[in-house]
C-alpha cells in the first residue's frame, strides 16, 4: 500500500509537467519506475509500452499497466486517475480563462510557446525511449520506416502496429 501511495503522488506531480502529453513523459516514467524505484524491470516496461501502443484508446495506457503491475486492478485505476486529475482540474479552470482572453496576441504567444516546448519534449522522449528499448539495427530501421510512412503517406497507425507485430513474429526485430 505505501508504494501505491508513492506511485499516486509521483504520477500526480508528473501530470502537471507533462507538456506534450503522456508520450513526452515516458522517459521520466521509465527512469522513476525502472531505475529509481525498481517497481518493474526494463523488459516489462518496454512490453507494457508495446501493449499500450497496440491497445485502443488514449495514449496513457503505459501508466495504467504500470499501476496494474504494482497492485492489480486497484493499481491500474489509481495510476490512471493520478495522471488524469491534476491536469484535468487545471484545464477545467484554464479553459474559461483562455477562451475569454481578449488579447489575440497573448493567446498566440502562449500557443506558440507551448507548441515548441511540446515538440522538443516529444522528440527527446522518442529518442530516449528508442535508446532504452530498441535492440539492434532492425528495430531502429523499423522505427525510421514508421516515421517515413507517417510523414509521407496517410496510412492508419494500426497498419503500422500490425506490420511491426508481423515482422516481430517472424523473428526479424
Amino acid at each position: 500500500m505505501p508504494t501505491l501511495i508513492a506511485l499516486f503522488l509521483k504520477f500526480s506531480a508528473f501530470s502537471l509537467i507533462a507538456f506534450g502529453g503522456v508520450n513526452a513523459l515516458l522517459p521520466v516514467l521509465l527512469e522513476l519506475t525502472v531505475y529509481q524505484e525498481h517497481w518493474l524491470d526494463l523488459q516489462t516496461f518496454s512490453d507494457y509500452f508495446a501493449i499500450a501502443q497496440a491497445a485502443p484508446g488514449p495514449n496513457f495506457m503505459t501508466v495504467t499497466l504500470i499501476g496494474w503491475h504494482m497492485s492489480g486492478v486497484l493499481g491500474a485505476f489509481v495510476a490512471t486517475f493520478a495522471i488524469i486529475w491534476p491536469a484535468g482540474i487545471l484545464v477545467f479552470f484554464l479553459q474559461r480563462f483562455i477562451l475569454k482572453m481578449q488579447d489575440p496576441m497573448k493567446k498566440k504567444v502562449v500557443q506558440y510557446a507551448a507548441a515548441t516546448l511540446a515538440i522538443g519534449l516529444v522528440l527527446s522522449s522518442a529518442l530516449e525511449i528508442a535508446l532504452q528499448i530498441n535492440h539492434g539495427l532492425m528495430a531502429y530501421l523499423l522505427s525510421g520506416l514508421t516515421i517515413a510512412i507517417v510523414l509521407l503517406t496517410r496510412w492508419h497507425p494500426l497498419y503500422l502496429i500490425a506490420l511491426g507485430a508481423l515482422l516481430g513474429a517472424c523473428g526479424l526485430i
Binding site: N23, L26, L123, A130, L142, L160
Partner: peptide
C-alpha cells in the same frame, strides 16, 4: 512486442 515497440517509438517521433 519488440516489433510493436519499435513502431511505437516511431509513431511518437
Amino acid at each position: 512486442l519488440r516489433g510493436i515497440s519499435a513502431v511505437g517509438v516511431g509513431l511518437i517521433a
